[in-house]
Design a protein around this nucleic acid. Structure first.
Lengths: 401, 401
DNA sequence: CTATTTAGTTCAACTCCACAACAATATACT
DNA sequence: AGTATATTGTTGTGGAGTTGAACTAAATAG
């Protein structure tokens, strides 16, 4: 039950009914493809005649195509409908501290081409090179009409302008990626932070997304980010910076965080924190000259963990403890049906899962309602999440009232 | 941008456009009354003819009435329209640990009659007496058609059944208030926890609600509750128990809370916590025989605070410190444009505000986006929030796609 | 080869909004 | 007093959309 926003509403015109039904049908095709007109009529409750008219329109606008004939024990064979993967493409860009990946996908977010480039220190040089790469991507498939470019960035994005306010791990401030790329490519561009992108990926493409209306994507890397979906939509807050659970203090008098607060969750449960755990453990136990100078990366620690290195195990388990503590907080505050964890640490998820879940169940009675799973990194959640930024524009509920 | 829920959608029929526009107009009348047809046409962008037809319908169904004529420098005088306060009434019930208040209001949530009763220990006896009182309320104004009964309760309410799962301060468990009252009164009943009710009150009736789409109601009493509005609607989570920020741990190894977690926010910032602070401070500073036996109530401490009692000041200031710490958490996680504080402590808000805001601004860079205000207790936020539970059913955005 | 079943199309009836013309008031100016 | 102007609210026609019934198309069972 949503209150009508009286400073920004849409009245209904004669065409509104069609718009609504069209979108419902387009979504049903997306999820249940291949599917026939008759099935759509049954699923929606619309008349077969209405469905046929809408399908005619969707085919004309090349959103969908007719495919093979179906099989039935009796009667005329139904003609199957699919999303048209030939025509419409979306470009996704996943900006990460070291490497930026980009891809051209079809409407099902299946990759057509991929590319990557190092993330330069200088944002302008980087955006320049990025737009070259985007152009190449498009040129390689000139027959594909491109719907737009979705960009996921590791930082805080302002709601109205979509400007990147601050990306701590890139050192970038106040970068207008949207404007730059729109000018360079003449395509619509949507920018959001990586956690929100991942949340959208789970909502639109996640295997567990059926029937999920409230979920949280938890990105664990140098810092911790969360993207929140409640009532089937992103929770952005006024600023667009809702979901900074990584900067909630879990220890009032803990270490000072770069955000100004003390004892933030990410000070305890991020990759960086774990690297610190490892270094300190190391320093204590050995003379440690070598260890201090060569700080291991989080990936190093993961490898050592797999090899059974006791210090790595201690560090990772400490991280898992704090991940659980923070996840309990997410559940207590949001009671989502799903929490998806994204990040390097998911590679050892099987081993840390018991620790995380124990901590969670000890700290909240609501734990049973929420599934906690690692994302499938092979599905490229960040990159395809950026795709979802564009895709959702065409598939969301119509702007009404 | 909301994803369409494919397991529970509404297709558009011919009548859908009318439904949408009708609701928009009804809401505009609610907010801007008195208002003329011509103004409505200008505000909505609908044709004057369409507006007239919709108004005719709304008058026929007695949602609104025509009132006086307006004044204009030129031309025909407009006829003003209002919500019809004669016809439709809503009953609100505010269940609190000691006293339960109830009222019959008009569509503007203005009280027509009020009543109250002590909250019995036995829930069944209580509901029995409550339904008698509700009947009396209705009988006193037999000409008013009653839309339903909204009930705000101090406890966790399950989403689907609206059963009261647990109310710690009442000792009630698994009470089906909705079913009982619906059977007893034959009216639709909506039950939700007090914090959610308060949040709805602010959304629908709050003075600061214009342009507010994301807000949090913070109820501070024996425990701490939060009702969250994001994107113009309640955030309930799967269970319906989202918003239990009071049970987020702000100290990993803090005291055990009744919820099973340790160091919950409400262990530090609730009225009960403050009473504890006072008792302990007292014990230290004096011989304290008398003080230990007679534990003061929170209201006592508030009175002493106003009188300048140093121990009361210390206790309340400590409470304020922790309120600020928790509010910073709310802002970091949700970035709402408004946080409304409800509870006894608001009576000394002016004096604790600097402490709260200092703590908040030290702990989050997003602080400037969020207004933090005490509620106006004279507006009966809890009781009128219960009214909003029913009212919103008639005024929300239409169920579409 | 006919009956039955299912898919998809065609067309008249109804609802709703847009647009334009018109009726109803009220004021300003001559 | 009379006319021009401005504004509100109503009436009537046309276009867009859905419904529902009738119809065509296609496939299988007997």
């Amino acid at each position: 039950m949503r209150k009508i926003n009286l400073s920004d509403f849409q009245i209904a015109k004669s065409e509104t009914a069609r718009d609504i039904n069209r979108r419902i049908i387009l979504n049903l095709i997306r999820i249940r493809q291949p599917i026939s007109r008759a099935d759509l009529a049954r699923l929606t409750g619309l008349q077969r005649s209405t469905v046929s008219l809408i399908i005619e329109q969707l085919i004309e606008e090349q959103w969908i195509t007719e495919g093979a004939l179906g099989h039935l024990p009796r009667g005329r064979k139904p003609r199957f409908l699919h999303l048209n993967n030939e025509r419409a493409g979306i470009i996704g860009v996943n900006v990460r501290p070291k490497l930026t990946t980009l891809a051209l996908t079809d409407l099902n977010a299946q990759f057509i081409t991929q590319d990557s480039l190092p993330t330069f220190e200088d944002p302008n040089e980087f955006l320049q090179e990025l737009s070259v790469r985007i152009k190449k991507l498009r040129d390689s498939h000139p027959q594909i009409f491109c719907e737009g470019i979705g960009v996921g960035v590791p930082g805080r994005v302002e709601r109205k302008t979509q400007k990147l306010i601050f990306a701590p791990n890139l050192g970038w401030r106040d970068i207008d990626i949207k404007e730059f790329l729109e000018n360079a490519t003449n395509l619509p561009v949507e920018v959001d932070n990586a956690a929100n992108s991942c949340a959208l990926f789970e909502l639109w493409f996640g295997k567990h997304s059926e029937g999920v209306h409230d979920l949280i994507a938890l990105t664990v890397s140098e810092g911790i980010g969360t993207g929140i979906i409640a009532n089937d939509q992103l929770v952005l807050g006024v600023s667009g910076m809702a979901g900074e659970f990584g900067h909630i203090s879990i220890n009032e008098n803990g270490d000072l965080c770069s955000c100004g607060n003390r004892g933030c969750w990410e000070v305890y449960a991020s990759n960086s924190a774990t690297v610190d755990y490892y270094s300190k453990t190391n320093g204590k136990n050995q003379t440690g000259k070598k260890d201090e100078s060569v700080k291991p990366t989080f990936e190093d620690i993961l490898r050592l963990f797999e090899l059974g290195d006791p210090k790595a195990i201690e560090s990772i388990e400490r991280m898992a403890h704090y991940l659980g503590l923070g996840i309990a907080m997410l559940i207590t505050s949001f009671s989502p049906s799903l929490i998806v964890c994204v990040g390097e640490v998911t590679s050892v998820w099987e081993k840390i899962e018991p620790i995380v879940k124990k901590e969670v169940s000890e700290r909240t009675p609501l734990a049973t309602n929420t599934k906690i799973i690692p994302t499938n990194e092979l599905a490229y959640p960040r990159l395809r999440g950026a795709i979802a930024l564009i895709l959702q524009k065409h598939f969301v509920a119509p702007p009404v009232a």
